[in-house]
Each structure stands twice: as C-alpha cells, then as structure tokens.
Simulated assay, not measured.
Amino acid sequence: MAAKKKAATFESALEELEQLVERLESGDLPLDEALADFERGVKLTRECQQKLASAEQKVKVLMEEEGGKIQELPFDAHDDYPGDAE
C-alpha cells in the first residue's frame, strides 16, 4: 500500500488544482481520468479552503484588541494601522 503524501502547501495545492482544471477544460480526457481528476480537484479545493480558514483565524487572533474586539481593516489601509510605527 502506498504511503500517504505529506500535506501540500497552499501554493502547491493551488498550482495542482489549476493544472487539473486545465486538463479538464481541454475535454480530451477519457471519462475515468476526468472523473479521477475531478475527484482530486474537489479534495484539493477542500484542503485550500481549510488552509485559508486557518490562516484567517490566525490573523484574527493576531489582530484582536484587549477588549476582545477584532479590528478589521481593508488591505489598502495598512498605513493607517495604529500598531504601525511612524
């Protein structure tokens, strides 16, 4: 039995997912291969979603203020962040 693969990084999972989409969009795959690629794509999508959710949670924890509130800022407002040194 094959050993389990080490968990892929977000970037490598996303790259593989993009390659699978290209293969599927080509329309040149036999049904069995297309189904296997689709199944792998669903798995990679779930892995990416989990990694993004984990990263979002970590960012929220880091951004938490003393009162337990989360200060949400748009990405383009990073210069206005009160924790930034001037």
Results as ranks from 00 to 15, higher is better:
M1S: 10
A2V: 15
A2I: 12
A3N: 11
K4T: 11
K4Y: 13
K6G: 07
K6Y: 09
A7R: 12
A8Q: 08
T9D: 01
T9I: 01
F10E: 00
E11M: 02
S12V: 03
S12E: 06
A13Y: 00
A13N: 01
L14Q: 03
E15D: 14
E15F: 12
E18S: 10
V21Q: 13
V21C: 07
V21P: 08
L24S: 05
S26T: 12
S26R: 11
L29W: 09
L29V: 10
L29H: 11
P30Y: 13
P30C: 10
P30E: 13
D32N: 15
E33R: 14
L35G: 09
L35Q: 15
L35R: 15
A36K: 14
R40D: 06
R40K: 12
R40L: 13
V42L: 09
K43L: 15
K43D: 15
L44N: 02
E47N: 12
E47R: 08
Q50T: 10
K51G: 04
A53I: 08
S54Q: 13
A55T: 01
A55Q: 05
E56R: 11
Q57M: 07
Q57Y: 08
L62E: 03
L62Q: 04
M63K: 12
M63W: 04
E64F: 07
E66R: 15
G67D: 14
G67N: 14
G68S: 05
G68Q: 03
I70G: 03
I70L: 06
E72P: 00
L73P: 02
L73S: 01
P74Y: 10
P74T: 11
A77W: 00
A77P: 01
A77N: 01
H78M: 09
H78P: 03
H78F: 12
D80I: 04
Y81T: 00
G83D: 06
D84I: 04
D84R: 07
D84A: 10
A85Y: 05
